[in-house]
Nucleic acid binder design. Structure first.
Lengths: 212, 212
DNA sequence: TTGAGATCTGTCACTGAGTGCCATTAGGGT
DNA sequence: ACCCTAATGGCACTCAGTGACAGATCTCAA
């Protein structure tokens, strides 16, 4: 005799974490994010309510799976790029981020549809992006002299790369993920690299301290 | 006979909304954000719990007062700038945003101290900033041809101005608000304007459609 | 002064997210 | 069979946020 009747949904040897994520996505898209409770999700996945919070920190977390691991990979790459041209390294880091979204296109698309409608999820997405921007600007600052001009250049360059990334990703998402976005990404990265390279180079040269 | 005994704290004719905000700031800084409940705030302000949510949408909202009205002012200004040079208008809009923070310096400083320590508040701050960036890029897009190069230029320029704004504000906050940040802001705006003006100008010229 | 209408507040009950604690179960190795 | 560990179920609890209703306050008009 089993303590729980297994759920009707197909869920053979699928890990509980995946079952929860799949159930959550389905319910969110069908009946909306706010009107889906954790109880709905866990019931659909055939597990106890408490188990949900052992796999995801919050209800929002089930939508944003592995930003942390991507962040770690980006940090690791930049940590190993101490002798690379800074702007080149940041461009490559941006590619890493972009490819992490393209690794699971259908999930990225589903998340995009949700974030367009739910303000809380949009804000969460924005917060994740800000973390990437932070990693990029921290790296650039580490490669530049400790002046406020250099700090400004680092932040502007990081923000520009992230903006380019987002713009290409958004356009791909809006198109429904039809064509490959990589050529557009390369074009955007080239534009931003050409734009920011002089700014970074200039702030590297001057050891003359700060401003105003 | 009064239905409630007035609280010990001085709170004569002060509007309830201000009483709540003041009590919240004090409690947050003394005993931390998470360990302060709405009950703590309303008890300190001498009002009912329900009243808090009539003045603020959420617990976080009490920290971020009037972003909406600032957004409206920025939108209004940009709406009236249909004949201004786009980059100049965005620079002026950035000044508007910056001055809205400088209008209440001590509150801006207190909020900064809180956002440094509480992740939820930091994310909220980031979301607010993203809304400003959105307004700027929407304006730029409205002033540019409908090509993907122009969209990219608009987003990169908007992100650059916002990054410059944030960098100057952060440096002023870190310094404890000692000197006037306006010269640094002007220098940063000049840098970013010089950087993005060619990008915007180029995307205005070409009516040749899109890329890739 | 009085009364009608609108606005604000107090009170209560409720939903739902998230946490702490403990018992139970499953699996793995000895 | 026996431990040991990790994962799950179940329960109780705190707290944010909302809905509904009653009471209080204010304004304006007659």
């Amino acid at each position: 005799m089993y303590p729980n009747i297994p759920p009707a949904a197909p869920s053979a040897g699928e890990p509980i974490r995946d079952r929860l994520a799949r159930a959550a996505f389905e319910l969110f898209t069908v009946q909306g994010y706010e009107s889906t409770t954790i109880d709905d999700i866990t019931t659909a996945a055939g597990v106890a309510r408490r188990t949900f919070f052992r796999h995801f920190r919050s209800k929002e977390d089930v939508i944003f799976p592995d930003h942390d691991s991507v962040l770690d990979r980006v940090r690791w790459y930049l940590g190993a790029s101490a002798n690379t041209e800074p702007v080149f390294a940041v461009a490559e880091a941006t590619r890493l981020i972009f490819e992490s979204f393209m690794a699971t296109p259908e999930q990225t698309l589903a998340r995009y549809r949700l974030t367009r409608e739910v303000a809380a999820l949009r804000d969460r997405e924005v917060a994740s992006v800000a973390r990437y921007e932070r990693v990029l600007s921290d790296y650039l600052r580490s490669r530049l002299p400790n002046t406020s001009e250099a700090a400004l250049a680092a932040h502007v360059a990081a923000a520009s790369f992230v903006a380019a990334h987002n713009q290409v990703l958004r356009e791909w998402l809006r198109s429904g993920g039809t064509q490959s976005p990589r050529p557009a990404l390369e074009a955007a990265l080239t534009t931003v690299a050409d734009l920011t390279a002089p700014l970074i180079a200039q702030s590297r040269r001057q050891s003359s301290q700060n401003a105003v």
